[in-house]
Design a protein around this nucleic acid. Structure first.
Lengths: 110, 110
DNA sequence: TTATATGCATAAGAAAATTATGTATATTTG
DNA sequence: CAAATATACATAATTTTCTTATGCATATAA
């Protein structure tokens, strides 16, 4: 994913937010989009991504639609209603995380 | 630690930065300082903290000094030279993380 | 005197990632 | 044309990091 361990725990947030911006995406597309947006800094590995997508689906946050394109399979994921709600929660949690880390590491500003 | 999974991977960064600000600290002190600075949002559990401290020591980033105060043991930790270097790296990694997450989640600003 | 606070430690288990494979088709390159 | 790369999914074994539970010991507050 990255040489920095800070990204551990961020994958679901990233997936959900991307899907809130793009209506539907498939796994490989997500890896490429993340790589492009982060200029190569973040590379989502398949071993992390696919289990995460399956779990989000099992939790009812994502819906799947299987499509065949150029004779190759694609599984398009999109947010469910509760997936949309959870995305809002995750974004709030991220804002809180950043604030908290700043309070912790720059106590002068507190 | 927190209800949010985003903190996974942040513990070493927090420990090192606190030690860069306080010269020396002992484990229990770290848990209380973090709780105070984050107004209760972040509670470092002992099961996470002590193994982390031991590992940082084994890696040569921390030195230990055992002291008895009021008949109770305290293990004071302080940064070694390479611990100080690693703290700089961790802080850069945190700044990168925040920038990258913002690029990822607010692509309009990119 | 009993609960809470201080102070350390470790073990069992869960969660989330890495690394390594595996399968299959399409396209680019030498 | 053959070989490498890109596209596209998946899972298993292992590692890392955390939670939860437990244990020991002393001091202080209720």
């Amino acid at each position: 994913m990255s040489n920095s361990k800070l990204y551990r725990g961020s994958l679901n947030t990233i997936i959900l937010k991307l899907l809130s911006q793009h209506d539907k995406m498939y796994g490989y597309e997500i890896t490429q989009k993340v790589k492009a947006l982060t200029k190569g800094e973040l590379n989502i590995t398949e071993g992390a991504l696919y289990p995460a997508l399956h779990k989000l689906e099992a939790e009812g946050l994502l819906d799947v639609e299987v499509v065949k394109v150029d004779n190759r399979m694609r599984k398009y994921y999109k947010l469910t209603q509760s997936g949309t709600k959870e995305t809002v929660n995750k974004m709030e949690a991220l804002a809180d995380y950043i604030n908290t880390m700043q309070a912790l590491l720059n106590p002068k500003l507190a």
